[in-house]
Write a protein that binds this DNA or RNA. Structure first.
Lengths: 198, 198
DNA sequence: TCACATAAGAAACGCAACGTACTTTAAAGG
DNA sequence: CCTTTAAAGTACGTTGCGTTTCTTATGTGA
């Protein structure tokens, strides 16, 4: 066999596997991902994968972890509503159909592999979100749109939670109309209600 | 063989299967449910199940459908906050860990069986919720706790969505402290923010 | 009352993927 | 250069799927 493909190792191989896993995930969803297909796509074999991750859920979480985290751009749209629409839109854009499938899939396996629950939860807590929202609020306060407000961690997580919920249920990209509803009928009222003079 | 167990048919058999499926679901979670185990528990065989439901997701949804829907008791606790705590608590009580596993599992299969997405969504829309919340609000208005407010369908779904989200992520029964957070830091402010004089 | 249509029960199948074990072979490192 | 490491490849037993085939109990209606 003259064909001797250079044999990859360590970091390089691992990256190839995780990329293959991510692509599979996007094509067939969590339930459709098989270790064998990932191995084939990465041009490697099952044992190589099993040496690194104990099961599908771990592999998928690792593949997810390699994807660059959301970097919400702070560009000022000039209004509180505009900023919120942009933020919600950015979240929704990331939380597309595949995301829902993945979260659902991993979650579905936490009965068999309870240790995954913690990993998944940690991944979903998304700490930077509160700061982003606080920044948006501070700008609105500076504009005079809002009385000074501080959001609790819980209130800060609401946008992410609501959009994740929506995108998991709907399976399709969250439509703009839904984003507008969430902003106009939920989050803007919530922020107004948090103002001290109530 | 003197042992001739009476052979069940139709409705009776179907009920036995769905009950067995529900019990399996509660014991091992969606990912752990196997048609074979359900058949064994119901004292029947696989073909009998496959003759009725095309796959695990359909069977599980059917089993879920037999469970009595939530009947939120309207008992007046005397305060808006008390009523909301009771409502959120009732939702959380139903949306226990198994619920999360089931929703996640069915959702995870919507890649393979897209037709399930619609069924699941319909099941989750939970129409009566808005009326319940509106009733709670009206009582608060009558008490003078709140200026008159009407909640949009979207705002009315928020409690259910947030608690479902929470219970899916946490895997454990939603603790009272979380329910209090959702009421005090999210939903009460939201209702205040919806008042017209803002 | 009996014959027939229906559907339950049971066993086995081929398939796919799991997760593991074992061998061979290429690369890395002292 | 020689040893160690681990990747590639193969094969295995297991499980559950969804299906097929067959037998047999049950309810219906002639």
């Amino acid at each position: 066999m003259g064909e001797s493909k250079p044999r990859r190792r360590g970091e390089q191989l691992e990256r190839a596997i995780l990329e293959a896993a991510w692509e599979e995930l996007n094509e067939v969803g969590y339930a459709g991902v098989t270790i064998e297909a990932v191995a084939a796509r990465a041009g490697t074999s099952k044992p190589v994968i099993y040496r690194r991750w104990a099961n599908r859920a771990e592999l998928v979480l690792a593949a997810w972890g390699r994807q660059s985290p959301m970097r919400p751009d702070f560009k000022d749209t000039g209004t509180l509503r505009g900023d919120l629409m942009a933020l919600f839109g950015a979240i929704a854009h990331r939380a597309d159909r595949m995301m829902g499938s993945m979260i659902a899939g991993v979650m579905g396996e936490t009965f068999r592999h309870p240790e995954m629950a913690a990993l998944l939860q940690e991944r979903l807590k998304s700490p930077p979100m509160v700061q982003v929202i606080q920044k948006i609020i501070d700008r609105a306060v500076a504009r005079g749109e809002l009385a000074p407000v501080t959001v609790s961690p819980r209130a800060g997580r609401v946008p992410l939670d609501l959009i994740r919920n929506e995108s998991m249920l709907c399976r399709t990209p969250v439509p703009d109309s839904t984003i507008a509803e969430l902003v106009d009928e939920v989050y803007l009222p919530l922020l107004r209600g948090l103002q001290p003079n109530n």
